[in-house]
Structures are given as C-alpha cells and as structure tokens.
Amino acid sequence: MKLTKIMLGFGFAFLYFPLVILVIYSFNESRLVTVWSEFSVKWYFELFKDEQLINGFLLSLRIASLTACASVVFGTMASYILVKFGRFPGQTIFSGLTVAPLVMPDVITGLSLLLLFVGLNELIGWPSARGATTIWIAHVTFCIAFVTVVVSSRLREMDGSLEEAAMDLGAGPVKVFFYITLPIIMPAIMSGWLLAFTLSLDDLVIASFVSGPGASTLPMVIYSSVRLGVSPKINALATIFVVCILISSTASWWLANRFSPASGGTGKTT
C-alpha cells in the first residue's frame, strides 16, 4: 500500500515536476532562466509587448480553429461513409488511407505537402505563395484522420435502429442525418474538434515545411526565439498555456459527464 503510493508519487513527479519548475520560473525576476533571483510578474508584461509572439499566437489560433472546423466536416463525412455504407469497392484502401496520417512521420507529411504545393504552383499557378492557407490545408489533411477515428467509433456504437426508426416515421435520409445521427454523435464531433484544434496549435514540423515568409505560427516563433537563447517570456507564455489547457480540459470533462447516457443526455438506448 505504502509502496504503491510512493510509486504513484514518483510517477506524477516524473510527469509534472518539469511543468511545476517552468511555472515557478515564469515568476522569476532574473534575465537568466536557470537562476532564481526574486518574485516578479514582469515577464508577463514583457510578453504582451512582444508583437512577434502575439502575432504568432493570433495566427496559430486562426489556423487552429479553421483547421478544426474543416477537419470535423471532412472527418465526419469519411466516418459516415466508412461505417454506414457497408462494403464498397476500395473500402479497405479508403479506410487505410484515411487513417494513415496517424502513423505517418510529420517530416514526411510536411515534405510531401511542400513538394505538392511547389508542383501545383508550377502547374496551375496556385498557391502563388506559401503562408497561412497552405498551413491550413496541411493541418486539415492530417487532422481529418484523428477526427475520423473519434467520430467513427461513436457512429459504430450508435444503435442503427434509431436511424431506421426515424426513416420509418417519415424522415428522408437527409433529415435523418441532421435530426437524429448528428445530434447523437455530436459529443464525438466536439471532442474531434478539440483534438484537431490542439494538434494544429501544437504542430511545428509540418507548419515549418509548408509555411512561407511572414506566416509564422506560435510554435515556429517560440522555436526560433529559443534558438537564440531561452527568454523568461517563454516561461510566462507556457504558464498561460498550461492554465488554458487546464481550464479547457476540465470543461470538456464536465461536458462529457453532463451528456453521458446515465444522466439522460445524449447516449444510446438499451
């Protein structure tokens, strides 16, 4: 009993101690990241004065939310086809290709997309320059895979007779989808959206490949500034991020509990 508690404490420490250090040092007055001098919040003010970081943050936010929206639409379509259409020619290849980006190394995805964009530019003159749009397209291509996995598992466990019942009661296929299927898989779509948002916000490798001059996402800005020496501003930024993630994951946990079948929310009937 005691041993397991020690092990548990050790595990948590291993996972979260670095984060705690980071949060503590974000309130460090010193210019040197590794030397503690005294408590201060000046780096937080410095952070908000740094236009490059703020612009990177806003760009990342824009790309992430657009990516999440687009991949949720395409991912849901792909899941619906995979789960509901039964067997069709090329189904195995389709399902394989849909989820392949899950295991594809980022470097390869990034490089291949870069080659595609360059090639397209030569062929049809579009995209004329790489930037936010190309990053968005690149992020959508790999986020679809994650959304598809989440949404299709929910679709698969949904009682198929619900759709039949709606059809039996006089609703055509389109109505059935929007009035029955969509509300029931909505929790999965929402968590797919959050997942895509996070992945896009977090991506550095693929974005670096397909980005152009003037379009630097937050991870790119941080990475390049860290190469010149770690500024305590980054600690402050990271702390803000940790707090945001804490709030949003608590919210999504709360939402998931609220809409669980046991409390009469969205779920399967027996």
Binding site: D159, S161, L162, E164, A165, A166, D168, L169, I180, P183, I184, P261, G265, T266, G267, K268, T269, T270
Partner: peptide, 13 residues
Amino acid sequence: VNMMFQSYALFPH
C-alpha cells in the same frame, strides 16, 4: 406502415 423496434429505438436526445 410504422414499426415498433425491438430495442424501441427511442431518440435519446
């Protein structure tokens, strides 16, 4: 024609 399903298929939402 209307059907009552074995699982009842009531819309949970």
